[in-house]
């Protein structure tokens, strides 16, 4: 998964997500979830990161299950529940809702954990023709992200030093962060423009993002192959 072109990967996985949204089949959703887990393991994602990120997903899935189980809309129930004898239709309803939470999260994390951020933005600019001003603006914002985390911790420490207890994400913590961000954005813009950045001129690239045959194959399978397989089988 790592070697695929990021923009192509995004479009392909989005297509799969929509395919799942169009079908109300818990088995299909669950198999998509399992496949994305396997794909993550194959592309050597760290197991600890995976477990940490999937913990809230399982909680959300459980929440959705009980919502669907308790508040089933009686008449819009799929008829297939009776055919499959999985139990009462309420269980089926809950399973449908919760399995898609799992599948969506699986696909999303598969993308997030196997994609290099900077390469993704570059590929947006190159393959999807996002204007350069946005691509470089996003790169600048991405570069400043660690500073934000640092600033947040620093403000928190400052409050603690003064003996004031603040909750995480409270306005008194976010306001200094906002003020700083505005400052940074102005300084960055001035810095970039003073170095001759101009969104209109074409630039040469240090590391061009390429599209290979395997990218086209992946896209074809996700956008054409899988929908055909699901709808005709």
């Amino acid at each position: 998964m790592r070697s695929l072109n990021p923009a192509f990967k995004l479009i392909g996985l989005l297509a799969v997500t929509f395919l799942l949204a169009a079908r109300h089949d818990p088995l299909l959703s669950l198999s998509a979830f399992v496949i994305s887990l396997i794909a993550m393991l194959v592309s050597r994602v760290r197991l600890k990161a995976m477990l940490l990120l999937f913990l809230p997903v399982f909680l959300a899935a459980a929440g959705m299950f009980f919502t669907g189980y308790r508040f089933a809309a009686g008449n819009s129930m799929p008829v297939r529940a009776e055919i499959l004898h999985i139990g009462s239709s309420a269980v089926w309803n809950g399973l449908t809702l919760s399995s898609r939470v799992l599948a969506y999260a699986g696909l999303g994390l598969l993308f997030a954990l196997t994609t290099d951020r900077i390469e993704l933005i570059r590929s947006f600019q190159k393959q999807l023709h996002v204007p350069a001003i946005f691509a470089y603006g996003l790169l600048a914002a991405w570069g400043i992200f660690p500073h934000m985390a640092l600033e947040y911790r620093r403000t928190r420490a400052a409050f603690r030093a003064r003996g004031i207890h603040v909750f995480p994400m409270s306005p008194s913590l976010l306001n200094p962060l906002l003020v700083k961000s505005v400052r940074w954005s102005e300084e960055l813009a001035i810095a970039m423009e003073s170095k001759g950045f101009d969104g209109r001129t074409t630039r040469s690239e240090f590391a061009p993002v390429l599209v290979r045959t395997s990218d086209w194959v992946f896209l074809a399978v996700c956008c054409l192959g899988l929908p055909a397989a699901v709808f005709f089988l």
Binding site: I133, F134, G137, L138, A140, A141, W142, I144, F145, M148, A149, P168, M169, L174, L177, L178, S181, V182, W184, S185, E186, L188, A189, I190, M192, E193, F197, G199
Partner: peptide
């Protein structure tokens, strides 16, 4: 839009992305 505006939007977006995740 000027570059200043775009970076401002991107940075506000980044700040709020962190807030969204925490929330």
């Amino acid at each position: 839009w000027e570059l200043k505006d775009v970076i401002m939007m991107a940075i506000l977006g980044a700040v709020f992305a962190a807030v969204y995740l925490a929330v």
